[in-house]
């Protein structure tokens, strides 16, 4: 099942009459006229709802002598909401792209000619800026505080504050005056 089909399924279920039809069909397979009588709806309205239930795979039909009998599709009803929510979607890629665009926007607005204008107040924006500066450091390599300060100073004069933020954000680990990029 695709994500769009799951959405159609949820839409189909968000109607009281269709739920009532399903409740009746769970008890036993039925034909249109009987459902119409039970639910006090016209046969054409019942047919309308049944078509929607069939389209999303919740119901099925078969011929029995002169009647078309409708029944539930048990396999479809066995799906849990969790399974339906977990269905893969292309939304993940779109979200990643939106995040990347946002990150680029922040970097563009806080850096001028490779220099940081000021430290963002908002945590989320600050982390983006810190991660951008951290790209200058090698992962796993050990740096002395002096080395760190010199490198950060290329980006911003207040290197002490930036260094402390980098440690508190978990970008660097500090042990006995030695910094390691995580």
């Amino acid at each position: 099942m695709t994500e769009d089909q799951a959405i159609q399924l949820f839409k189909c279920l968000s109607d009281k009459s269709r739920l009532q039809i399903l409740k009746n069909l769970i008890k036993e397979p039925m034909y249109v006229e009987l459902l119409a009588e039970r639910l006090e709806l016209t046969p054409s309205t019942i047919s309308f709802h049944l078509k929607k239930l069939i389209d999303v795979g919740l119901a099925t039909s078969y011929k029995e002598q002169y009647y078309v009998v409708y029944s539930i599709n048990e396999k479809m009803l066995e799906n849990t909401i969790l399974e339906l929510v977990k269905i893969d979607s292309n939304e993940h890629e779109a979200q990643t792209e939106r995040e990347e665009n946002y990150r680029n926007k922040i970097i563009k607005s806080f850096f001028v000619m490779g220099k940081l204008k000021n430290i963002p107040v908002q945590n989320e924006k600050r982390k983006i800026v810190l991660l951008e500066i951290a790209k200058a450091f090698e992962q796993g390599k050990k740096y002395t505080e002096r080395e760190i300060n010199i490198m950060i100073a290329d980006y911003y004069d207040d290197f002490c504050t930036l260094r402390k933020y980098m440690v508190s954000e978990g970008i660097f680990e500090r042990e006995n005056g030695i910094y390691t990029k995580l």
Binding site: S14, D15, K16, S17, L41, T45, F48, H49, K52
Partner: peptide, 10 residues
């Protein structure tokens, strides 16, 4: 109000 949206549309 009774969540019978299609019938309401009718």
């Amino acid at each position: 109000a009774d969540n019978k949206l299609d019938e309401a549309n009718f």
